[in-house]
Design a protein around this nucleic acid. Structure first.
Lengths: 374, 374
DNA sequence: TTGAAAGCGCTACCAC
DNA sequence: GTGGTAGCGCTTTCAA
């Protein structure tokens, strides 16, 4: 380990922050609040104001009118609440109501740009609706996912947004059976009757392959990972279909699944391209593979797009920066996230009406760039 | 909006998942569990087994020995718990114990690679210690951060890991006053006595600038954003110091802060480089600026490293992929995350011992690549 | 060795 | 109009 901590526990700090807020010193309640270790509860409020807990609770929850509580009391309570900065405890509310206003977002790997971006949109949307997001990474590992689902159940999370791992069918099925709202994304599970939001993998793969063919490629390679998950299968069959319809040679190169944090499959790709010198068009099934593949092609001094044309699934900021700019299929991240949350929220609303799955398939966009030009 | 949903609510699904698990059908308790809408509670267990709630609780919490509960009862209870798959409710535990085992990770933008990577490491480390992570993005916006802090307090989160926004001093100070463990990262607040884990911004900026000078640059530019946050100030002063010590010209170009999701500052950089044709060495204060700047330099056909040498803060996967490979300062992400959690966990442990801030400053690594070669 | 019961903070039913 | 109170699921003290 090349790094070491170099500095701990510096001298105690002597700046008195209170100097900065003299206006607060004027408010005795605030002063008290800052000193108190204990947070003020609804009971404290009731006692301080000489009203009942019930009354306070109704006012807090906007039911003052409905319960015909006098304006006088309502105002008094509201004013006091503001003064002491009281906020109801979500924990207690959760326990009481059986809901936590928390949605869990289980991504394959939250540090991956694709998932991180979706996480960001989801989060935004969730906050607007009063929900919080808890996230985690499954590493596409079934055991880990199962474990995570179990602990989240204990937290009364209200819903699950999941990129399903292999073999997770039973866990998902159980969740639905137990009436948890579940929405899958990125891929889905043919064997489970569950909502999902995915993209047109097959159609876009078909379109991208066609594009390569139209640009004159005669020897195509489809580079993918060893996986029987729907999104990969669909991309593969889109490629295959386009190839079948025309008069070109095709190779499918499947790398065994690499954990994203491990060293990339650069070497394998290098060998592959070295052994197939005739290849003049490559379709990468994910941007991750493309990045590694581009390096390999660069090492082999295959010029893009002259010697070989390149297209990749999952557009990325960097494809636009690369020289040449790389043609890629862009997933509608924002729309996808929005639909995910929309679906989740509708399930949350209709909890007692039973579970009627929503299945959405969104179209992508092929961004044609220099890497497939003639 | 170019995208529309194309397919909703497909036909109901008819696959009977139970066919897949005949082994479960044999266990009547499981069957019951799956049917039940209500989760089994400690009370149910006590009733079913004819023992008291207390006894069950002690056994669950590994205090059977301590409380001298008979082996017979202990085994019986444990067996039953396993059978019904009982897991204590975290919500109820939180309410009772005043702790939630949740740490909140407030990043500037969780979809940014830097924060997403740290999030990933943090998460891993947290799970190992029985903590969950809740995350959010502040957008470097004080109002949003304040709002978030307030809602997280209501959730009894146990600790806060925060990239401080401008003007957040008072909120952080209040958190500490209220005895919440807080650890800052990426930058710190000189006015608040708070733990933090940051990197050697000034030292590394100095080193990078020196490197440019050593490679023969005579007209340096430091490209940064308008910000008075510590990490940016430090990077700037590292640059300035190195420049002062030698006989070179220097320009500092400050862009006004762009929200990361907005359109980049490409245009501004283009104008800058156009107006300063003499520049032969550029130091970008963040990788985000570098990406935009590289495009601008490319547009202007300034050849790297021949016409202009380039170095950037925050190493990135793509710097290694770019042609030429870009020299960059690498932050020790994994170590940083580890130290963050270590600090947080130690605060969590020593909650009642008062708050003694830990300040860590970690060294970076300058990865010299083609963009600064001669 | 085991159990009764208080209480964490809140909601909402029911009574006055 | 307002208040009393049960109970969400759990931990832990005290009593037996």
């Amino acid at each position: 380990m090349p790094y070491t901590k170099i500095c701990i526990n510096l001298n105690p700090f002597s700046f008195d922050f209170n100097l900065l807020k003299p206006h607060i010193a004027l408010l005795s309640e605030w002063g008290f609040y800052f000193m108190a270790k204990k947070r003020v509860s609804i009971k404290d409020i009731a006692k301080a104001l000489g009203v009942s807990i019930t009354t306070v609770s109704f006012i807090i929850n906007g039911k003052a009118r409905e319960q015909r509580i006098s304006d006088e009391v309502t105002q008094k309570v509201k004013k006091y609440i503001k003064e002491v900065g009281y906020k109801p405890s979500h924990i207690a509310q959760s326990l009481r109501l059986g809901k936590s206003k928390i949605i869990v977002f289980m991504a394959e790997d939250i540090s991956n740009q694709f998932f991180a971006s979706i996480a960001r949109f989801i989060e935004e949307r969730a906050y607007k609706s009063g929900y919080k997001i808890i996230y985690c990474s499954t590493d596409n590992n079934f055991e880990k996912a199962k474990e995570l689902i179990s602990t989240f159940k204990r937290r009364n999370v209200d819903g699950f947004i999941i990129t399903p791992t292999p073999n997770i069918e039973e866990s998902i099925h159980d969740l639905i059976e137990e009436e948890f709202p579940v929405v899958l994304f990125d891929r889905w599970l043919p064997e489970v009757n569950c909502s999902y939001v995915i993209v047109e993998n097959k159609e876009s793969a078909y379109e991208a392959t066609q594009h390569l063919i139209e640009e004159g490629c005669k020897n195509l390679a489809f580079v993918t990972v060893e996986s029987d998950q729907t999104q990969m299968m669909d991309r593969s069959s889109g490629f295959t279909e386009a190839v079948k319809e025309s008069d070109v040679n095709a190779f499918e190169f499947r790398l065994k699944f690499h954990n994203l944090s491990e060293v990339g499959p650069y070497e394998e790709l290098l060998d592959f391209f070295k052994s197939k010198k005739e290849i003049d068009g490559v379709f990468f099934a994910t941007n991750y593979l493309a990045f590694e593949g581009l390096q390999a092609l660069d090492t082999l001094q295959r010029s893009i797009p002259h010697d070989v044309k390149v297209v990749s699934f999952d557009d990325h900021y960097f494809f636009n920066l690369y020289k040449p700019k790389i043609t890629a299929i862009e997933q509608p991240l924002e729309l996808l996230s929005e639909k995910l949350m929309e679906t989740m929220l509708s399930h949350l609303d209709e909890l007692n009406l039973g579970y009627s799955p929503v299945r959405l398939v969104l179209p992508n966009k092929l961004n044609k760039r220099e890497s497939t030009e003639n």
